[in-house]
Simulated assay, not measured.
Amino acid sequence: MTTEPHRPHIPPRPSFSPSPHPAPGSSAATPTSVEGDSRPPAPVRAPVPASVSASGGGEPEREFPQAVAPGASRGPARRGVGAVDLTPRTDGAEPIVFAPPQHWARDDEETPAERTTRLRPVGARSPARIAAVAACVVLGAGLLGGAVAGSLLASDEPGEATPESRFQDARAAWHSLPVDTLFPRSLKGRGAGPGGADREWTRVAVAPDGTCANALDPLLVKALGPVGCSRLVRATYTDATTSSVTTVGMVFTQADRAATDTLRTRFTREKLAERADLMPRAFPVPGTVAAGFGDAQRASWTVRVLKDVPAVVYAVSGFADGRTVTDPQPAPAATADGATTAPAESGLGHEAQGIADRVERGLRTTVKKPTETPG
Rank of each mutant, 00 (worst) to 15 (best):
G249A: 12
S230N: 13
P218A: 13
K271F: 09
E63H: 11
R125D: 15
P20Y: 06
P370F: 00
V81M: 09
D256G: 15
L119V: 12
A69S: 12
A134G: 15
A29K: 08
P8C: 08
Y314N: 15
H9Y: 14
A291M: 06
P49S: 09
P60I: 05
R358Q: 11
A333K: 11
A240Q: 13
P40I: 12
T326Y: 10
L232H: 12
G338T: 00
A67D: 05
G150Q: 10
A131D: 05
R364Y: 08
T211Y: 02
G354L: 01
T211M: 07
F183W: 00
V309D: 00
A352V: 13
A315F: 04
P47D: 04
A69C: 05
D198E: 02
A83M: 07
S300P: 08
P76V: 11
S176R: 01
R269A: 15
R39D: 08
E63P: 03
L182I: 15
G228A: 01
D85H: 03
P218N: 05
V233R: 12
R39Q: 13
A149I: 06
K222R: 15
R275T: 04
T162S: 09
L153C: 07
H350P: 00
P18N: 08
R7D: 04
D295R: 15
A197M: 08
L272P: 14
V227H: 01
A29M: 14
E63R: 13
P158R: 02
G225V: 03
P65I: 07
R166Y: 03
A223I: 06
G71A: 02
W104I: 13
Q168G: 05
F98M: 10
A50P: 07
L224F: 11
A290M: 11
W174E: 11
G159P: 01
F98Q: 10
S346N: 13
G57P: 06
P184I: 10
A161D: 03
T324H: 08
P284G: 02
S27P: 03
H350S: 09
P194C: 08
T365A: 14
G196A: 04
T202I: 09
R231V: 09
A290V: 07
D308G: 05
R118K: 13
R190S: 14
T202Y: 03
R185C: 00
G80T: 04
H103S: 11
F252E: 00
F167I: 03
D308W: 08
R298E: 02
T32W: 05
S300R: 05
V251H: 01
A356C: 08
G322W: 01
S53N: 09
A147F: 10
V44R: 08
T326S: 15
P49K: 13
A331G: 10
R185Q: 13
R361C: 13
T211L: 06
S300Y: 04
A259S: 11
L363H: 01
R106E: 11
T260V: 07
V179A: 02
H175N: 06
P49L: 10
V325W: 01
P12H: 10
D91W: 05
R257M: 06
R89M: 06
G140R: 01
V303W: 00
R125K: 07
T30M: 10
A207P: 02
H21M: 12
A258K: 14
P343M: 07
A291L: 09
A131H: 00
G225H: 07
